[in-house]
Design a protein around this nucleic acid. Structure first.
Lengths: 122, 122
DNA sequence: TCCTATATATGTAAAGTGCACATAAGTAAT
DNA sequence: ATTACTTATGTGCACTTTACATATATAGGA
């Protein structure tokens, strides 16, 4: 959220970037929720703007949809981990996300272009 | 929505661009809902991906928040129009939105950079 | 024993989204 | 005049999203 309470620009939280980022991370290597939370730092998100509950729920939802599959891992130390890996369907969706990202990038650039034209101070 | 029913990338509808685009249009000149819908084409949105209900609701919500103010206009031909104009608070919010857009643009570029690194076919 | 880190998950209220539907006034043609 | 279209503004509703708090459990170190 912005400082301004009337702005729903959501520049703080990970929001809609969550699914595509998780898919991309899981394409690189299977991982579990807690590990993914830390890896999200690569995309510019700190653990302060990531709600663990959202990550675990998102992973479960993606499993329901057949984008990922999971299995319990009790091999290593610490509590049991639910290890996720990407399915073929999940990998295909990454490309759809990339295309959507390009479209959104273009829209943002259009907005910023009009904004700068409007408020430029020569 | 994507062709893919599992993708919530929302590259079709105007979604979160609605508020900032309306504010920017109203900064240029006072306008009413129906006129704003048509002007949104400037930002790359066609009337096919704009739900009129969402526009009118968004305008009312922004008025509640003090970002815009409205008055009925019965001067011209056709049905009465609710003419909106921007408040100072609304204008300030445009700048907050622009800043948020820059952040989101950066995030998209980060995602696309990692995506291309992952899937590059030399 | 108590605290911290690791790890996963649920509960819930509030807000947002998309789609369909309702209403109404003017305009233009038959 | 009545039919149909354009202009113009809204409501209803089911569904999803979001944020924030809370619950649970294992292991390691002080």
């Amino acid at each position: 959220m912005c400082q301004n309470n009337k702005c729903n620009c959501s520049s703080g939280s990970i929001g809609r970037f969550l699914q595509p980022c998780l898919l991309l991370l899981l394409h690189r290597s299977p991982n579990h929720g807690y590990g993914l939370i830390q890896s999200l730092g690569e995309f510019g998100f700190s653990d302060t703007n990531i709600d663990p509950g959202s990550i675990y729920r998102q992973l479960r939802k993606m499993e329901e949809e057949g984008l990922v599959k999971s299995q319990w891992s009790i091999e290593q130390n610490g509590p049991a981990k639910r290890l996720y890996h990407l399915t073929n369907e999940g990998e295909e969706l990454i490309h759809a996300w990339a295309a959507a990202m390009e479209i959104n990038k273009q829209r943002i650039e259009t907005f910023l272009s009009i904004y700068k034209k409007t408020f430029r101070k020569e």
